[in-house]
Design a protein around this nucleic acid. Structure first.
Lengths: 159, 159
DNA sequence: TGACAGAGTTAGGGGTCCCTAACTATCCTA
DNA sequence: TAGGATAGTTAGGGACCCCTAACTCTGTCA
């Protein structure tokens, strides 16, 4: 038997959860308008999502009231945020991607990757960080490798 | 101005494109039933998707006829397949994830990641491959690192 | 305290994607 | 070549997610 909070969430509801988590962290509870802005959706869409999250026992919400997450909601949201941060860190610190590209990619990929991959990715980031301390910086070495390759490619395409 | 084949495809239609590409490679054109099986959807869902792909100029399709991709369709499908393969290769050969977990994750993530990240990922795989030839195998080193860490964690959790 | 601005909700509608059930076309074999 | 098996389509409907327009609520300020 599953409790209502254990069921699989859609990518969309995960986004709402994440937004509430981030906004509620800054103050006491999130505001509907700010959620709408953060996700670039209409305010009425937020109302619908909040009703869905309440039904799943993930958000405390009554019409015109302030919006907070329940304990299970906070747990789930924290997991989404954790995925997001691990992905972004990997994109930026290992692959050397621009922060804003990494941010957008993390937003999408966080819904697609399971704990197995995320766990390995985190481990990999730590491995790379450690390699830096050991004076054998994998990330830096890769950046050089990537630069020389893409440079060579560009020269080849346009001599 | 955009031609009809340049517009952004949904993840779902990309999946259909990919399935047709893979199935048509094995024989002359794909069969509706095989697409349905490959994607685990009802046959009627395939019909709908084929109509959508035809409208976008990506698939050659008439009722009861054999299914092939147009030139733009094949180009797009090849790009999806390429993303898929790069992701899977990264998961398996760098992160050391099981092939079937990697396969499933690649199926989902291929719709979420853009050319910038995919390009870097490919470059990273090449960097790791090269490190292997140079007698300084990053993938192997990471596997050892991951093993020792997860082993230590397991011992900590259950001494 | 009453009126206004802004926040939030409801109503209604559209798009996507999937399903089942029932129908039609095609193919193969007796 | 007729009939049955299989493949494919259509019809109808549900879930999800988003939108705009119009309404209601709330808080603030003159």
């Amino acid at each position: 038997m599953k409790t209502e909070s254990e069921q699989q969430l859609s990518a969309s509801l995960e986004d709402y959860l994440e937004a509430i988590f981030n906004l509620a962290g800054e103050s006491e509870g999130a505001r509907s308008k700010d959620i709408a802005e953060a996700l670039s959706v209409a305010r009425s869409s937020v109302t619908g999502a909040l009703q869905a999250l309440r039904e799943k026992g993930l958000a405390n919400y009554r019409p015109y009231g302030c919006i907070t997450l329940t304990e299970p909601g906070r747990t789930l949201a924290a997991e989404v945020v954790r995925k997001h941060n691990i992905l972004k860190s990997f994109f930026v610190n290992v692959l050397g991607v621009d922060a804003d590209v990494a941010q957008q990619a993390a937003c999408k990929a966080e819904h697609a990757l399971g704990p197995e991959i995320i766990g390995r990715l985190l481990s990999f980031i730590k491995y790379v960080t450690e390699s830096h301390r050991n004076g054998r910086d994998v990330a830096e070495e890769f950046r050089q490798f990537h630069k020389s390759r893409s440079g060579a490619k560009a020269r080849k395409a346009q001599p």
